[in-house]
């Protein structure tokens, strides 16, 4: 073999570079993958301990309404109901208002002002949830108390806080999906003599539907998983909610207050991890929903 043939068939510094790159970047991605796997496995193992080690039936756990760990009553239904209530209420209130704000920004207000809204929404998206919780505690709760009596704590206050928290994120996503509707649609519709409202309601919003729904599911997923902001205003009484302004408790709020007050490995503690498992499963379901909703847009 002459020199050139040797050069062509043997590794060079570039080959070593390539190996280094492949190894470094693969390691990083493998680490992240294993991390996700570890989270799923660890939380599942801890989450089912109540059923496997402490002999509580899953069905009873999910259907009983009595949550008193100190008396071995592990009925998670009140928290499940409350979590879903605050999430759905917040979503139901936020969806139309998000749409209104997003339509105003993209379709009605002059383009110059859009440049002003963008950073503002970004800032609101970045405001920590604790701040929203604190707002709820100092403004919403006393206001509800003044209007309806009672303590003011409860599902309604949590809904308000979650609404404030998810609105910026949902608005930002909705604005993006409205902006993604091709300009030609607007022109074509206007060319047929449609008014702006007709164009908005019959062309733009329907063609951005999948994006808008994705934003709604995304917002509700965040609402379902929010812990501290809700914990600050929900009242934290683990009973079936009797009304919108009665003190109740969500999965997250019970977890937040409970983990520190129970001993690892006891049934009380395991019951809390089972609540965490519900949260995990719900976040997977929300993920699936987002996939289903946004996939329709692709096909």
């Amino acid at each position: 073999m002459d020199d050139l043939q040797k050069q062509l068939t043997q590794p060079s510094p570039e080959s070593h570079q390539e190996w280094t790159g492949k190894i470094i970047s693969s390691l990083a991605i493998i680490l992240i993958g294993s991390l996700v796997l570890a989270i799923l496995v660890f939380l599942t193992i801890k989450g089912i301990a109540l059923f496997t080690d402490n002999g509580i039936s899953i069905w009873r756990f999910l259907s009983q309404t009595d949550w008193q760990p100190s008396h071995q009553h592990y009925g998670a239904l009140p928290m499940i109901v409350t979590s879903f209530s605050v999430t759905i209420l917040a979503g139901v209130v936020a969806l139309p208002l998000t749409l209104v704000v997003a339509v105003a920004i993209t379709e009605i207000l002059p383009k110059k002002m859009t440049g002003l809204f963008q950073p503002l929404i970004e800032l609101l998206v970045g405001v920590p949830s604790v701040v929203y919780g604190y707002l709820g505690l100092t403004i919403i709760v006393p206001e509800l108390q003044r209007l309806f009596g009672g303590t003011g704590f409860g599902i309604l206050a949590a809904t308000g806080v979650l609404f404030l928290m998810i609105l910026p994120t949902m608005t930002s996503m909705t604005v993006d999906s409205l902006n993604a509707v091709p300009k030609q649609y607007r022109q074509a519709s206007a060319g047929l003599g449609a008014t702006r409202w007709q164009t908005i309601s019959r062309v733009i919003v329907p063609s951005a539907r999948d994006g808008i729904l994705t934003a709604a599911v995304f917002g509700m997923a965040r609402a379902f998983g929010e812990a501290l902001a809700v914990q600050m205003v929900i009242g934290n009484t683990a009973v079936m909610p009797k009304g919108l302004i009665e003190s109740s408790a969500t999965l997250t709020s019970v977890l937040t207050t409970g983990i520190g007050n129970s001993v690892m490995g006891t049934a009380d503690n395991n019951a809390l991890w089972s609540l965490a498992l519900i949260l995990l499963i719900m976040s997977l379901i929300f993920n699936l929903l987002i996939h289903l909703v946004s996939k329709k847009g692709v096909a």
Partner: peptide, 28 residues
């Protein structure tokens, strides 16, 4: 695609769940 899905799952985990995992694994 599986790796991308894993990252998506990670991004949708409620932070309290991440905190509990951290408590379980890192702290304990």
């Amino acid at each position: 695609r599986l790796l991308r899905l894993a990252i998506e799952v990670l991004s949708s985990l409620p932070s309290v769940v991440v905190g509990l995992f951290g408590y379980l694994v890192f702290v304990l």
